[in-house]
Design a protein around this nucleic acid. Structure first.
Lengths: 198, 198
DNA sequence: CAGAAAAATTAGACAGTGTTCAATTGTCCA
DNA sequence: TGGACAATTGAACACTGTCTAATTTTTCTG
């Protein structure tokens, strides 16, 4: 067939990403398949390849979309919170990962093939979440330079990320840890306290 | 054919794991294939399935083997070090991941299918690395209980793990961070200092 | 030592994958 | 109304993990 005019090119792109996102949430990275996405929206695989040069590009788009949801999730949790915003931030990070485990893990499961850099557009969209953290950390450290704040913020995100990974893959369960998010928050507080006095 | 008596069952198992390990190091998790392993050792795929119930079991064995190499690597680095063993520990963690990126990442890339728990034997072997960290952290905190030390050690491993992940997937490069290991070490020092006074 | 039982190994099939491409079909413009 | 163009498809290709029947080799038994 030719143009079915069911959807414009942009609409179709969006449709594919949405359905892909749905399937990623339901089945996880390992079971994800472009053919199944095509079947679900009533097109053939070739159409996906008309919109996305390769599966990697589709996965990239799906994961960037997850980043957007994640940022929104965290932003909403912070709205109107006056005290202890860092605690809310850390908990929101964990909660999103717990509530959307497959989507969250897919972000880190997908490794770009060597020589294919993360497109600037995706990079920019994904940066949003880091910017939120930088803003919050900066608010707590008025005497620190922007570059110091950014470096610390990235480091704190890495800290929380590590705890979240171990929480979700069962490493913490295995040794009876019942509050990984609390543990992460403790680490974050220690580092912020250290940055205040240093 | 039947038993070729080229190798005993145990030898063959070892041979498969070794070749699998080699290929995992060279190609990474995404490109790994049981068929290629079989071809490389001069057997057919079926033989692998005679030794391992499924691909997941082979991947499990390969990754557990990586854990063993990792423990050895860290232990050797610590040998004879008197001062600042924590710095050596953190650096060794990073160095192993950097020198064996594919192997290291495969550990976290491989997700067991739902309902298949990590066999106790693998769990025990993998725990070794954590035990090293617990020992080192405990040495620095003689006034803390064993359970407190274990909880902190796991948390510090998570912290370093998060930094290492971001270092290897390029997140730190992206924002001009040149010393992720140093950053992780700073975090670890802060937490240990906090545990000393608390 | 011969023959039967057991175990190891293989080839081949199956259903699935990502990717490519020629052929077709719908849409738009001159 | 035609012709150009782009979207869409189905089929092919070379893979993958997994399973099974058939074959071959070893081991056990009488």
């Amino acid at each position: 067939m030719g143009r079915r005019a069911d959807h414009s090119r942009a609409e179709l792109r969006e449709l594919i990403i949405e359905e892909g996102h749905r399937q990623m949430a339901a089945q996880g990275f390992a079971r994800f398949s472009a053919r199944q996405v095509a079947r679900a929206i009533g097109y053939s695989v070739g159409t996906i390849y008309n919109l996305f040069p390769s599966l990697d590009h589709l996965l990239l788009a799906i994961n960037t979309h997850t980043f957007a949801l994640w940022s929104d999730f965290v932003r909403r949790r912070l709205e109107g919170v006056g005290e202890d915003r860092i605690a809310v931030l850390v908990q929101a990070y964990f909660d999103f990962a717990s509530e959307h485990t497959n989507l969250w893990m897919a972000i880190f499961d997908h490794r770009l093939p060597p020589g294919m850099p993360l497109p600037a557009e995706d990079e920019e969209k994904r940066r949003e979440l880091t910017l939120i953290v930088i803003r919050e950390v900066g608010g707590l450290l008025p005497n620190r330079s922007q570059s110091e704040v950014e470096r610390l913020a990235r480091s704190l995100v890495a800290t929380v990320h590590g705890h979240c990974t171990y929480a979700l893959n069962g490493s913490f369960d295995l040794m009876g840890e019942t509050d990984p998010a609390g543990l992460a928050l403790t680490r974050v507080r220690e580092s912020i306290a250290a940055a205040k006095v240093a």
